[in-house]
Amino acid sequence: MEPSHASRTLRDIVAVLVVAIFMFPILWWGLNSIKPYSAIFDKDGPVYLDFEPTLDNYRVTMMGVSRVELAIQDGGGTYGAGGASSYDSRQTILDSIIVSVGSTIISVFLATLAAYALSRMAMRGKQHFIFWVLSQRFMPPIAIVIPLLFMFRDMGLRDTHFGLILAHVLINLPLAVLLLKSFFDDVPKDVDEAAMIDGATRWQSFRRVVLPMVRGGVAATAVLCFIFSWTEFMLSLYLTTSIRTLPVKITTFVTSTGTEWGFITALGTTAILPAFVFILLVQRHLVRGLTLGSLKE
């Protein structure tokens, strides 16, 4: 039965409301990043749109302008609340991109091979192995962070991009393998067999036939890995000192003399962008039904 006009309108209103609830914090975040300090903390109540927009917060976090310079430009006084820690976050964003992209590439590469093998090849105790892979994800990272710290220190991996990439791969791999396995399972074995009869080796049938058919799954897995790595906090905090990823860097904006909400929101808003661009690049592969037409459905 077609829903009536009234029920459709109601459905639309509910949908808009739900989206609004989810979007509001992001909007507020973005809004605060362009407010002058006085508008973020107004004694008379929240300021919504009644303020003079400024890019000062971005100039500090993204252009390396120091707080002293800003204060001088503003005609004396102090700008913001905190102490003297460095707010220039350009290197941080670069570090985060290196770690996230690096760990995503390695995770997806390893997971694709492992998932294909788990999906296609017979091996003794496969179910146990799959459960073992999954069980890695049950383990809370806090439980391994100290041993990992010592191991990384001894191997010279502490405070290196590669070390952090490796740590993120460790956490990402189990889920990536299982997720990709389910995508490979959806491609019927007949397709591999057809390729083999057509003259393909196992590698050729993987590379040229099966892999292109799970492109959507690879993209989805990449997005998940990237977002995890982009937002991961604890391992980054313990395993690095000079390299700072975004979540760790932002916590340094909470200082002993106050919280720099302006810089936090500016950097937070900026941090959304690379993730957004990455997902935008990947999302055209995120179409369902890539195997459509291969089989009789």
């Binding site: 019927p188 390729a195 292109p212 058919m213 890539l290 459509l292 037409g293 089989l295 009789k296």
Partner: peptide, 8 residues
Amino acid sequence: QNYALYAH
């Protein structure tokens, strides 16, 4: 039986 064509 199910053709097993290369969909891509």
